[in-house]
Design a protein around this nucleic acid. Structure first.
Lengths: 235, 235
DNA sequence: TTGATAGTTCGATCATAAACGAAATGTATG
DNA sequence: CATACATTTCGTTTATGATCGAACTATCAA
């Protein structure tokens, strides 16, 4: 008698506070690393790992390893639909969800990815550098040409890769919230570092999220012709 | 129901085998007494009573006392919708094996989803209404245009949404067995209700499965140009 | 190489809740 | 009234699973 085969198992999988926290964090359709999901669920990495394993096993999530990170995302639109249907009958949780969605929005908009800039702004900036002919995708890396080198140097970015450093100079890093590449590697790190120094961006306390300052907004337009407020509005 | 349940409580409420059995039994839209629900869940009356109490407390069911019986029903169409959404991801669909039980086959063919028609027939009818230009998908809803309105009215379907009803008029409901949308909302309910009145469809005792009567078979062809025998199983 | 970081696995502890026997409450029928 | 039946409440047993410390694997950087 299998008119209701896995549904109990499935619902009990959802029916756990920590797992729900993770699932709603993933409702945006973007993929998030295990550490971030652990943080949003307010549990230790061990516990989060157990939960994530069960969610994958249960077909609610899929995972993909990228470097030493493992990114998790909802397995299908149907999963999101089911979660939304459950949200519809669960009473609205007033203030807290609003705050969290603001936080989520901030994270998606701009954040640090290890030591370089990611999120909508990170991707938009990278795409702009490509469009301006300053960098060029080449395999897993980017190539910085002379035009780009002098432009970045004029902004005070360290563009010479230290010969003894074995770190890749300019790497393509797949941005999981945008599903496009942004600039990583030591060049990405020094560029991001310089943006902090210039006061164009600043950390939002309590997380990886970053905001673009008014100075940064005008700076991006003046130096790169990049309007980051456009990105912001679109969220 | 003093405190508004959050999604985790709600899902864990659903995520229990006995309770799922009861909820699925109630998916047909009929109210059932506690004893019958105990039977379908294969637990003792004491256990069933505990479960039912929790389901009412959690806002998934409402109860009504008639004599010494107490009848339970799903609290709202939204609850049915959430259950269907869970079925959509929990039912590893597509294999229509020959060994599939007659009951399962009947359920897939035609059934009530709370108060509207679902299954192959429900989806086929909905698609036909779209093909005939009577309704049109619009976001999460359908829009009923003038042609559709007069056609359905001529069949005796209530097509005016009561202004005081806060229920959505014509909604898209994802069908778990077909993975396509069928017509839900108050319009779906009144259409289905009219099909019962006309004797085009009738309940198969013992579940939420529905069969199309010979009268219905010719009626669907005459009024909608829809051949439901094509959908019908090779029984 | 060494150290740092992300993530997983294992084991022990602890809390929750599902199940049913027994008994109580309530409601119809004789 | 008495009896039968539907349902609920109570108390005990038992099973499941969430959690985190500790230890392990892998990737990356210097």
């Amino acid at each position: 008698m299998s008119t209701s085969p896995n549904i109990a198992e499935l619902a009990s999988l959802i029916g756990e506070p920590s797992r729900v926290m993770m699932l709603v964090s993933l409702l945006g359709g973007k993929a998030l690393p295990a550490s971030e999901l652990a943080q949003s669920a307010k549990v230790t990495p061990q516990t989060a790992s157990t939960h994530l394993g069960k969610l994958v096993e249960g077909g609610l999530l899929t995972s993909e390893s990228h470097g030493r990170h493992r990114y998790y995302r909802l397995a299908s639109p149907e999963v999101a639909h089911a979660l939304e249907a459950l949200l519809t009958i669960s009473a609205p949780q007033p203030v807290r969800s609003l705050r969290e969605s603001d936080q989520m929005r901030a994270i998606r908009y701009a954040r640090t990815c290890y030591d370089h800039l990611a999120g909508e702004v990170g991707v938009a900036l990278t795409q702009k550098l490509i469009a301006l002919g300053m960098i060029e995708a080449s395999g897993q890396d980017f190539v910085l040409n002379e035009a780009g080198k002098s432009k970045l140097r004029s902004l005070g970015v360290e563009v010479e890769s230290s010969p003894k450093s074995r770190r890749r100079f300019a790497r393509q890093c797949l941005d999981w919230s945008e599903r496009r590449h942004h600039l990583a590697g030591s060049l990405g790190a020094s560029l991001t570092n310089r943006l902090f120094e210039l006061g164009w961006i600043e950390r939002i306390p309590g997380g990886r999220a970053v905001r673009v300052t008014p100075k940064g907004t005008s700076g991006f337009i003046a130096e790169f012709g990049l309007d980051v407020t456009g990105e912001k509005e679109r969220v």
